[in-house]
């Protein structure tokens, strides 16, 4: 298990489920929010913000290297771990590649998933081919922030080649697209306006197929919204968790001189 630099108050540990061990980070108090994020190092500020209001658990993978993250086995393990963490129900948030896992988990565990949030979801492919990703342009594609030498290490936890391989093997999954219509949790799909990994066309697919789905666009954010605009992402996620589809109702006072 790779040790991450965590915000104050977070623990990093493992929980045993039927088929193995699940790695996770955890902090905060309040309603349960389960996040599925293979590379949480890029979103630590987001998680710190969310942990101020919620009991936040970030599932980062398994201790079993032979279980692919997009396999049915992993979905079952993640679901079992989530039920142990939050037996009374939870909000489920899937980041990037883990959005596909979150979708499957939301379908399998619909009684417990109170809301589903997909952030920069790579669960379905846009019509256009994804960019050819190499080590040299990876930073530019992932983030709208000025490139930094440490970004790749931050995001990939030191394993750049594995990440490039994973991007390269991304393929269209018709099964997931077809199953979107069966999601009955209120759903929010969040995209960065500058995301170079996924076309805006993908947002329209989620909106059209998922029965109760809202789309949120984060300005000046690339694929790693949690790195580029953690405050904005935390705001919209928090509002959606609290109000679900009625998060569109304005609640901020515009009164200047009460």
């Amino acid at each position: 298990m790779i040790r991450l630099i965590l915000p104050t108050g977070f623990i990093q540990s493992q929980i045993k489920v039927d088929k193995g061990l699940i790695n996770y980070l955890r902090a905060g108090n309040g309603p349960d929010v389960i996040v599925l994020d293979k590379v949480p190092g890029a979103s630590t500020e987001l998680y710190r913000l969310l942990s101020e209001n919620y009991c936040l658990t970030v599932i980062t993978g398994t201790a079993n290297s032979d279980i692919p993250f997009d396999s049915t086995c992993f979905v079952e393990m993640s679901t079992e771990a989530s039920n142990q963490f939050a037996p009374k129900g939870y909000v489920l948030l899937g980041m990037s590649f883990f959005a596909a896992v979150a979708i499957r988990q939301a379908l399998n565990d619909s009684d417990n998933v109170e809301a589903l949030i997909l952030v920069s979801p790579l669960a379905i492919l846009p019509a256009e081919d994804p960019q050819l990703i190499t080590g040299s342009n990876l930073t530019d594609i992932l983030t709208n922030s000025p490139a930094s030498d440490s970004l790749l290490d931050l995001y990939c936890a030191g394993n750049t080649s594995q990440l490039i391989e994973r991007f390269g093997t991304l393929s269209e999954d018709d099964r997931i697209q077809d199953s979107l219509a069966n999601i009955n949790s209120p759903t929010l799909a969040v995209f960065g306006v500058e995301d170079k990994m996924i076309s805006p066309e993908a947002a329209r697919v989620y909106k059209k197929i998922i029965p109760n789905c809202n789309i949120s666009l984060i300005y000046a954010a690339g694929h790693l919204i949690g790195l580029d605009r953690p405050d904005s992402l935390a705001n919209v996620v928090t509002d959606f968790i609290q109000y679900k589809e009625t998060f569109i109702v304005g609640r901020e006072s515009s009164e200047i001189n009460p």
């Binding site: 809202n214 789309i215 666009l217 300005y219 904005s232 919209v236 569109i248 109702v249």
Partner: peptide
Amino acid sequence: TEPEPFSWEGKYYKFRT
């Protein structure tokens, strides 16, 4: 240009629909 309703979380503008 966007054919589906969306929300916008900007630096200066926030619209939920």
